[in-house]
Amino acid sequence: MNEIAIITNKANHLIDPVLHFWGWEIPVYLFLGGLTAGILVLSATLILLQRHREYRWAGSGLLLFAPVLLSLGMGALFLDLEHKLYVWRFYTTFRLSSPMSWGAWILLLVYPLNLLLIAGTLRESFPAVHGWIQARLRGRSADLTARLFAWSERNLRRVAGFTLPVGLGLGLYTGILLSAYVARPFWNVSVLAPLFLVSGLSTALALVMLVTADSREHRFFSRVDLFVVLVEILLLFLLGFSMFTSTATQQAAVHLITGGELTHLFWIFFFALGLALPLFIELMELRGAHVNRRVAPGLILFGGLMFRVVVVKAGQLTSWISN
């Protein structure tokens, strides 16, 4: 046996008896950040391939959602900060060794690039919205906006070329943020970064399927998502495999989802409902079956959030020392 007990009064808020310093805010932030990353990667790729005109929502429509989604995510992140008035301190330095510092600066790059992509695609994809904006602006602001639209349209592919690595960086960062913590065995697995990126991409594809009324666009991205979900399952297998074959501490960490207290949450709410069932529905749709087209994407979005809920919680339950 080996039993360790704290015999003096240690009950630090959010630390004891087990760590629970990150609540619902961080999974929501990671989910919305990953979704935004997926949108940017998807739209930038389609623009670079010059196929954004074919797929109105994936190529440009979702770009209108991205700043809102990211702002909601950053709002959740702000709520999580314990010393809120000092939030500006993120932008007084850049710390190479801190993934959170990288993330803070990447988030700052996302907004202007997102805005330029919107400006570059709006006239073609959503002429009514473009016209509505133009009609409401007068004088200097109208002139500046018209110049912004013209510049963005001329340089659309160049902007997409910058956006693609930033989007990939944002998606990977949401995973690296956790995997960089050696102290938390459940998080300290390098495959977490690509897994979060792929999951973010899958949720972005699900959002396309959810909002598009174009059945051709729905069908095409349903097929793409089928492939992405299979990649996600492969990465999940690698995550489990690398932990099972690692140190005793990591083997104990993975037990949380293979018999431990997060098993039901992981296998029922994430894997079965958020991954396997939508995969099955997408396969059925591929074979011509008629299923409500909002079911599979809705489940994927739900699964994406549940995945982050499980991972964030699991990491905090694992440690090198079993106090």
Binding site: I15, F21, W22, E82, K84, Y86, V87, S319
Partner: peptide, 22 residues
């Protein structure tokens, strides 16, 4: 300090905590 708790996550000894001020 912003109270982001990155250091709390990083410490293997759970030796850090949040002061009432944040």
């Amino acid at each position: 300090c912003t109270g982001c708790k990155a250091c709390v996550a990083a410490c293997p000894y759970d030796a850090r905590f949040i002061m009432p001020e944040g």
